[in-house]
Amino acid sequence: MNAFFMQSKAEILRILRNPYYVFWSLAMPIVFYVIFTRVFNTGIDGQQEWQAHYLMSMTAFSVMGSAIMTLGIRLVEERAQGWSKFMKITPLTDTAYFFAKMVGQTVIHTFSIIVIFTAGAVINGVALTPAEWLMCGLWILAGSFPFLALGTLIGTMKKVDTAAGVSNVIYMLLAVCGGMWMPLETMPSFLQSIGIWLPSYNFGNGAWQIVQGNAPELANWLLLAGYLFLFVVLSNYVRRNQEAAV
């Protein structure tokens, strides 16, 4: 138990010390948030609504990024450098190692959510009820699981460069097509019809619904659960094949 606790702590420290995390998952979303709510779009209708909506977009964008990229690339690095192999001769089981990573990521996600929510409250005075803040935070935290599973799928790649390239493209496509940068309604209809099926849209939409006083839609729940299942099965399948090849 002590080992699991220490391992989780180590994973948290490692992410916090990763400059990419600080830049992409904290600095960038906040900068985007300022640009799209203060520089442009000032004086439009429903400004308060937009500010709350976009705060959720950026928080979801941040958490999705660390789930896919920070986790995925790190897994590849650890294998490429032989660290994962070295861990196999310690008494810490693969399962404990994996769950420590998940706990570490989740703590980091909680931290990102708090930082970005606070930034929204300070920058634009976004005012939600305590229950709404909490619900949004929990939704984003739970909704990150399919993306963590996607991260472990990326993590099965052989080369760090490939993993970094591929995960970047996936991340950006998911963000743009899922309406995290610009609302889906402002996009061409064929993109909209694809977008609503993406995990990113369903992830964001749950939180967008909550800030409007609704509950996440059933489709959001179902699709995210479906993607979680799909990515877990896929990454287990790939991993098993790789192990059998040795």
Binding site: Q7, A10, L13, R14, W83
Partner: peptide
């Protein structure tokens, strides 16, 4: 392992 100090890695391993 990256991003940990030598001391932190040793302590981590001791915990296993």
């Amino acid at each position: 392992i990256d991003a940990l100090t030598v001391k932190e890695v040793i302590q981590l391993f001791r915990s296993y």
